[in-house]
Design a protein around this nucleic acid. Structure first.
Lengths: 176, 176
DNA sequence: GCGTTTGAGTTCCATTATGCAACTCAGTAT
DNA sequence: ATACTGAGTTGCATAATGGAACTCAAACGC
């Protein structure tokens, strides 16, 4: 495979996909979020090969999404726990969850619900704009280069059309 | 590879990962969101092999995230546009974006910003609880079987401990 | 009219990854 | 002493990836 790496791309999505653009990693994170922390338990719940699980856990630990914690020293045994970065990654899982509920289950009937640990109330994650609080509508968005976009490459980028003036973002007139 | 499929799993995340748990598919959707719709343009911006792009586009069209639109008939040429399902999938991309900005760029300096097409204002997607409007904190959540969870399997599930009584969700007492 | 270019794919192939089964190994329980 | 457990390795057949070369039909240049 020699799978491509995107770690140098000037795009948050691309870079994140090096670790999240995979089918096992998100599921392993899911298990940790659900309170499953041990090798064997993860292996059985996911029905993932041990060898694959080994490489994935190593990767997730290296990338700082999980930490390996020893919980007994007789024969040394370990648990894998979400780090802060790992918990942040689970927010992505929740977005995936909403997508899946809408498109893969009849009547939006979720197979799994999230509840608040203290209050017991159901929690339903939705994406909103931090400033206005309104629901995000992807159709209304246009991208533009941000502060860490490689300088000098703006005009070569596919956002050039939105950026005739470096200080103002122009929206596009033609229809999609 | 014989890559595993999760299309029958009683989990919205697992099912979605069949199409989103991949590194190229999300990037292709990103291009479409950014207004790049043609085979060659996608191929060049992503630097993806034509053969891979072909299979991915076919897959995304079959799964209903993209639609193939003919835009000229001289020599028939096509464009790939996001469907409603595809736009919903881009919400996941935005969650990924937030994650990437925080963890892969210094000072949270995003390489790409999103602006509202009409107002021009910057838009910053964040995950909140639909009911309370509060920011989601994954540490405060516990999963429980939902309406479409396979009946009868609740007790065998890893949520059993949260579900001693089928009508009430119990939170867990032990620490993580 | 003929060669070139363009868009959109196929086909081939060497290299990697996946998934499955079998093997290891240290410490416990019987 | 023997079996069992948890957590990995190792080996192998098969499938997917990425890159280059090939196809094909219409349009363009002259």
């Amino acid at each position: 495979m020699k799978r491509s790496t995107f770690s140098e791309e000037p795009c948050s999505i691309a870079r994140s996909l090096d670790i999240l653009g995979d089918w096992w990693n998100p599921l392993i994170l899911r298990e940790c979020l659900y309170g499953i922390h041990r090798f064997q338990d993860i292996q059985q719940w996911l029905n993932i090969g041990r060898n694959i699980l080994t490489t994935r856990l190593k990767q997730l630990v290296e990338e700082g999404l999980l930490e390996k914690r020893q919980y007994q020293s007789g024969p040394p045994r370990f648990e894998y726990h979400l780090t802060e970065k790992g918990y942040d990654a689970t927010l992505v899982l929740m977005a995936v969850m909403s997508f899946g509920e809408k498109w893969y289950f009849k009547d939006n009937a979720a197979p799994i619900l999230l509840h608040h640990r203290e209050t017991g109330h159901q929690v339903k994650p939705v994406l909103v704009d931090e400033f206005t609080g309104e629901r995000i509508d992807p159709r209304q968005l246009v991208p533009a280069p941000g502060p860490s976009f490689p300088p000098g490459e703006v005009r070569k980028s596919r956002f050039a059309e939105f950026y005739a003036d470096e200080n103002r973002v122009f929206t596009r007139s033609q229809a999609d």
